[in-house]
Structures are given as structure tokens and as C-alpha cells.
């Protein structure tokens, strides 16, 4: 929930990023406070996933200008694993498959790595098994997924749920969910939304990248941003998503001049 007095968690200023000499992000400004939920919408190819991956530190993208502060530290100076350890989590739009690595082994390794960085207790395989099964129950996931290779042969929706399971285990300060709703059936969407709402507290924040209002029916955002050509061109409250649903993105172009540059 939005609360003006909450601390700033993430502060993105004038962010430019490119890959192979193509500029994709062209001046993103975004401020996220603890306790807030932000939705990011926008046409295909507008740079939403690129923004998410730049936050996570994907090596394909080079930041050419701008700053990202996370809890007052320079996020761009950290390699991906230290960003994760600091509490940034990206649920990928297209989670990859890792044949040969058992999901349970991977989840425990990730969990224990993060725990040890936080100075909290690691869990042995048996303790972890109990712990992860509890989280899976919350997301109504079949425990059989523990024995399979990471995402291998998982359906689109199962992969998305596995991402949320990881978020539930790692308890990040900032969760970036890139189209986690795409590919989920109606029941799964409700379950995942319930899980996300359950994880969302006054201490952490979420950025939901989505194309659809239906996710926002379940997870109500404090802010809705619209991206176009590598920038946030409009920011509003939850009603903005409803307007977009009704009128489409073209509708924005009429009064774009007036709104450009506004950020939360």
C-alpha cells in the first residue's frame, strides 16, 4: 500500500541501455517506495523486459547513461548475484529450462545462498524439503515438481508458478514480475495473485509487467506506468489500466505531450 512516508527502495534516473549498439531504453525514470505495487504496461517491444533484465543485471545489456539506486546503494555496480543477494528478484517472462539440475537442488542452493548472505540459518535437505513443500502448498503446486529438472518440460503456466515459488522462498525486497500472468489459466492466475498478495508487505515492493487488466483485478497497483519506445510515457493510478483496456494505447497519443516526463 502506498504511504507517502515510506522509504524509497528503488530509484531509477534517466536510464539508457543498449544491446549490440541498439539503444533500447531511452531515459527511464521510476521511483518505487516500500509497500508499493507498480504496474508497467506498454506495447510489445517497448522495452519492458529489457528494463526488467537491466535491473537484474543481464550481461547482454549495457547501461550507457543514468543511475539505479537500490536502498541507497548503486545497483549497477553489483554483479547479478549480488543484486539477488541484496533483495532484487526477477520472475522471467520466459523462464529457461536447465536439464540435469534437479529443481529441489537448485531451490535449496539458491535459498541457502541468500540465507547465508543475510546471516540467517541455512537448511539441510530434510528441513528444506518441509519448508519448500509448505510454500508449494500455498501456490497449489504438485510436490512432484521438486524431483524434475528446473523447468524442463514444464508447461508455460507451470514455469510461471515455479518462478513465483522461487520468489516465495527468497523473499526479495523488490519483486519484478515480467508477464507472470501470461500463460496462466484463470484458476492459476487467482492462485498466483493470492500468493503475490500474501508476499507483499509494507517492507517490500513489486513491479508487475503485464498486458492485461485481469491481473490488476487481483493485485491492485498503486501506480500504472505505460512504456513506449524505451521510456515511461505516462503514469497514473489503477484507473489508467482500465482506461487503456477500454481505449487502447493509441488513445494516449492524443494528450501525450501533457503527460510526458511525469513519474511516481
Amino acid at each position: 500500500m502506498k504511504n507517502e512516508n515510506n522509504q524509497i527502495l528503488l530509484d531509477v534516473q534517466n536510464l539508457y541501455a543498449s544491446t549490440q549498439d541498439t539503444e533500447i531504453l531511452k531515459g527511464i525514470n521510476l521511483t518505487v517506495k516500500r509497500g508499493e505495487i507498480h504496474a508497467v504496461m506498454g506495447l510489445n517491444g517497448s522495452g519492458k523486459s529489457t528494463f526488467a533484465k537491466v535491473l537484474a543485471g543481464h550481461p547482454d545489456y549495457t547501461v550507457t547513461q543514468g543511475k539505479i539506486q537500490f536502498e541507497q546503494q548503486d545497483l549497477l555496480a553489483l554483479p547479478p548475484e549480488e543484486r539477488a543477494q541484496a533483495g532484487v528478484f526477477l520472475a522471467f517472462q520466459y523462464p529457461i529450462e536447465i536439464p540435469g539440475v534437479a529443481n529441489s537442488q537448485f531451490l535449496r542452493l539458491a535459498y541457502n545462498t541468500i540465507q547465508s548472505k543475510r546471516g540467517t540459518d541455512e537448511l539441510d535437505p530434510l528441513e528444506f524439503d518441509d519448508f519448500v513443500r509448505g510454500k508449494m502448498k500455498l501456490l497449489e503446486m504438485n510436490p512432484d515438481f521438486l524431483d524434475r529438472s528446473v523447468n524442463e518440460g514444464f508447461s508455460g503456466g507451470e514455469k510461471k508458478r515455479n518462478e513465483i515459488l522461487q520468489m516465495a522462498l527468497l523473499e526479495p525486497k523488490l519483486g519484478v514480475l515480467d508477464e507472470t500472468d501470461s500463460g496462466l489459466d484463470i484458476d492459476a492466475l487467482k492462485i498466483v495473485a493470492k500468493g503475490v498478495n500474501h508476499l507483499s508487505t509494507e517492507q517490500n515492493a513489486m513491479i508487475l509487467i503485464t498486458h492485461y487488466q485481469r491481473l490488476l483485478d487481483h493485485i491492485v497497483p498503486d501506480y500504472v506506468h505505460v512504456m513506449e519506445a524505451g521510456r515511461i510515457i505516462k503514469t497514473g493510478g489503477k484507473e489508467l489500466a482500465l482506461e487503456l483496456e477500454k481505449h487502447g494505447y493509441d488513445w494516449l497519443h492524443g494528450d501525450r505531450q501533457n503527460n510526458a516526463g511525469i513519474s511516481a
Binding site: P59, P80, Q85, L109, A110, T113, I114
Partner: peptide, 9 residues
């Protein structure tokens, strides 16, 4: 990258 994004070195 996927593994590193989950905190692994």
C-alpha cells in the same frame, strides 16, 4: 545468468 539471478555466484 538464470542461476546468478537467484543469488548463486
Amino acid at each position: 545468468f538464470y542461476l546468478k539471478s537467484r543469488g548463486l555466484s
